[in-house]
């Protein structure tokens, strides 16, 4: 049986303490800059805050993983290298990286610190994953959310490192790391600036009938009826009209969250080492609720009991959930 570690999100020091207290095996977080893919206003850690967070977590036996999972613009790697230097000095347990240059710097400079390959690296074949393991010493790969459980089991048998999969949260996969939709409208890059739909470009407009429109950089990307559930203001989950679909439809993806709680036993049996909960941008309330639910479920399974899965639908985007490609390639 795998270790079935729970990897939990923290956007603030208070959220990190909440995750630790709720039973996280490891917490992942980032600095207040473009070196991570949740570079949102008012979110993330200063170096001083991270130092305190590492101490809090380590005292309680929890690991801290530092997300450096964006791509530096060509030739501008200083910020990522400085972030790695700071993380190493503060004693983080692993770096989550996407860019080969960043990975190479860490592998050469801090060979004693684990490297985890971010989902943003989009490594989904045994050949690609082995390349990262053999050349950069990667110890764990976070798999893109495009694989079925049999495919994960097969990959596990062909690679020399641990596997981490997402298990709950935002399900904006598209082709991981290659999404340029935000960049197209706002000029800011999800992959290099760490911002998908930057808040400064988002506006919600309430209409007289109680409907609400989501706008990004002045473009309306969805309109929700008075009683309709809403989703994030991301272009990939926008609803559009087209000549053949005048009623409006989700052209790319739907507002829906991943929830693999019912597949946990199969994923553990397939050899997945760690389960990632998405949501560094979410509140302490979300962190507390989701981490507690999955802690209890994983502990039940490891003890040989049937997992009692808490209902997390209220925390899902659009109050809808899916098992996505993990269940079937026919998804979407």
């Amino acid at each position: 049986m795998s270790l079935a570690e729970l990897i939990c999100p923290a956007g603030t020091p208070a959220a990190l303490r909440t995750a630790v207290d709720a039973g996280a095996d490891a917490v992942y977080c980032g600095f207040q800059d473009t070196t991570n893919a949740r570079n949102f206003p008012g979110l993330n850690f200063t170096p001083d805050e991270l130092a305190e967070a590492v101490a809090y977590a380590h005292t309680r036996g929890t690991k801290v993983l530092l997300a450096l999972n964006t791509y530096p613009p060509a030739g501008k790697v200083d910020l990522w290298q400085q972030a790695a230097d700071t993380g190493a000095r503060l004693g983080v347990d692993a770096f989550i990286v996407a860019d080969m240059g960043v990975a190479d710097y860490i592998a050469r400079t801090y060979p004693g610190i684990r490297l985890h390959l971010s989902v943003q690296a989009a490594a989904s074949s045994p050949e690609a994953i082995r390349y990262y393991c053999e050349n950069l010493g990667v110890k764990r790969v976070v798999l893109p959310r495009i694989l079925t459980i049999p495919e994960i089991r097969q990959i596990r048998s062909e690679i020399p490192c641990e596997i981490e999969t997402f298990i709950f949260g935002n399900h904006g996969l598209m082709v991981e790391r290659r999404c340029s939709l935000t960049n197209y409208l706002t000029g800011q890059s999800t992959n290099m600036d760490g911002v998908c739909s930057p808040a400064s470009d988002v506006e919600y407009v309430r209409d007289a009938d109680g409907s609400m429109s989501s706008q990004l950089a002045g473009f309306t990307i969805d309109r929700f009826g008075p009683e309709e559930k809403a989703g994030y203001p991301t272009i990939c989950k926008g609803r559009y009209t087209a000549p053949h679909r005048p009623e409006g439809y989700y052209a790319f993806e739907e507002p829906v969250s991943l929830n693999l709680s019912r597949l946990l036993p199969e994923l553990i049996e397939a050899g997945v080492h760690a389960f990632k909960i998405e949501g560094r941008q979410r509140s302490k309330s979300y962190v507390r609720g989701v981490v507690r639910a999955f802690r209890a479920a994983v502990d039940d399974i490891k003890a040989g009991h049937e997992a009692n899965i808490a209902d997390l639908i209220a925390l899902t985007e659009g109050q809808k959930q899916t098992q996505g490609a993990f269940d079937t390639k026919k998804w979407r």
Partner: peptide
Amino acid sequence: QDGDAAFFSR
């Protein structure tokens, strides 16, 4: 309560 969830539910 979670702010995103309260936003999703309107």
